[in-house]
Simulated scan of single mutants.
Amino acid sequence: MIRGIRGATTIEKNEANEIIDATEELLREMIRANDVKASDVASVLISATEDVTAAFPAQALRRIEDWTYVPVMCMQEIPVPHSLPRCIRVMMTVHTTKAQEEIAHIYLRNAVQLRPDLSLTRKKEL
């Protein structure tokens, strides 16, 4: 079965190290929480709001061992008025035997407000 795993995080400052570090933290938590192996990943799409410009968040994936050949692409989010600023979102498409409700979608930092329903559920399970 192919499933999507969602994740999001935010940064405080538009600085390259912060962008890459925050994205790596998010990716590692998504991988850990869902027991994902690189060989099971079809692709990873990473979007960022228009105020995240100092680095490509996708660079973070290259820091993770064995993820060299996973296709990854960055793109800009639609600039919706009053949307969450300095936000990085991830959609990881994976092959898994997990049911849809077993997938752990990860929201860190200020991005918790994007899906508080999923964030609260995960906190209870962890």
Rank of each mutant, 00 (worst) to 15 (best):
N14Q: 10
E15R: 10
N17G: 10
N17D: 15
E18Y: 03
E18V: 03
A22P: 00
T23M: 09
E24Y: 05
E24S: 09
L26P: 00
L27N: 09
M30A: 02
A33R: 07
A33Q: 15
N34S: 09
N34H: 04
D35G: 01
V36F: 03
V36H: 03
S39M: 12
V41H: 07
I46S: 01
S47C: 00
S47F: 06
S47L: 00
A48D: 07
D51M: 09
T53C: 08
A55H: 01
F56G: 06
Q59M: 14
A60N: 03
L61K: 03
R62M: 12
D66M: 09
T68W: 05
T68D: 14
T68K: 10
P71N: 07
M73L: 13
C74A: 15
C74K: 04
I78N: 11
P79T: 03
C87E: 15
V90M: 14
T93D: 03
T96R: 06
T97S: 12
K98R: 10
K98T: 05
E101K: 08
A104F: 08
I106A: 07
L108E: 02
L108V: 02
N110C: 05
V112G: 02
L114Y: 07
P116F: 01
P116N: 03
D117K: 10
L118R: 09
T121H: 12
T121K: 11
R122F: 07
R122K: 15
E125K: 15
